[in-house]
Amino acid sequence: MAKEDKPIVKCSVSNCTYWGEKNLCQADMIMIDIDTHASRDYNAEFAGESFDTEHQDIAESSSATCCHTFKPKS
Rank of each mutant, 00 (worst) to 15 (best):
S12R: 14
S12F: 13
Q26I: 00
E60R: 10
F46G: 04
S61K: 10
A38R: 15
V13R: 02
I34N: 08
Y42I: 02
I30A: 00
C16Y: 03
W19F: 02
A44N: 02
K3W: 03
S12N: 10
T65Y: 14
N15D: 10
A2I: 09
I30C: 07
A64C: 11
R40E: 13
D52K: 13
S63I: 14
Y42M: 03
I30D: 01
S74V: 05
T69N: 00
D33V: 11
D35V: 15
F70D: 01
A2K: 04
I8N: 00
I58G: 13
A47V: 01
T36Y: 14
S63Q: 11
V13K: 11
C11M: 14
S14D: 12
Q56N: 15
M31C: 05
A2P: 09
D33E: 08
K6I: 01
S14K: 08
I8D: 00
F70V: 00
P72S: 00
C11T: 13
A64Q: 13
M31R: 09
K73C: 13
E4L: 04
G48N: 06
E54W: 14
W19R: 02
S12C: 14
I30N: 02
E4A: 06
W19T: 05
M1P: 07
E60C: 15
A47G: 07
T65V: 07
Q26F: 00
N43R: 03
A59S: 03
S50A: 07
V13W: 10
F46H: 10
V13N: 02
S63H: 11
K10D: 06
D35E: 12
I30W: 01
S14Q: 12
G20R: 06
C25Y: 02
S61G: 07
K10E: 05
N23A: 02
D5Y: 04
D28E: 05
N15P: 07
S63A: 13
G48A: 12
T53I: 12
S12A: 14
K10L: 12
N43W: 03
M31L: 08
F46N: 13
Q56S: 06
Y42R: 05
C67G: 05
A38N: 04
E54A: 14
M1R: 11
A64S: 12
S74H: 15
S63V: 08
A27N: 04
K73E: 05
A27I: 03
E60I: 15
E54G: 15
K71Y: 11
I34L: 03
S61V: 07
K10Q: 02
N23C: 00
A2V: 01
C25A: 04
A27G: 07
K3P: 03
E45G: 08
R40A: 11
I30H: 03
P72Y: 04
I30M: 01
S61M: 08
N43Y: 00
S14V: 12
K73Q: 09
S63N: 12
T53M: 09
S50E: 09
S39G: 07
M31N: 09
M1G: 13
K3G: 02
K71E: 12
E45M: 01
I30E: 03
F70W: 05
E4F: 12
Q26S: 01
P7G: 03
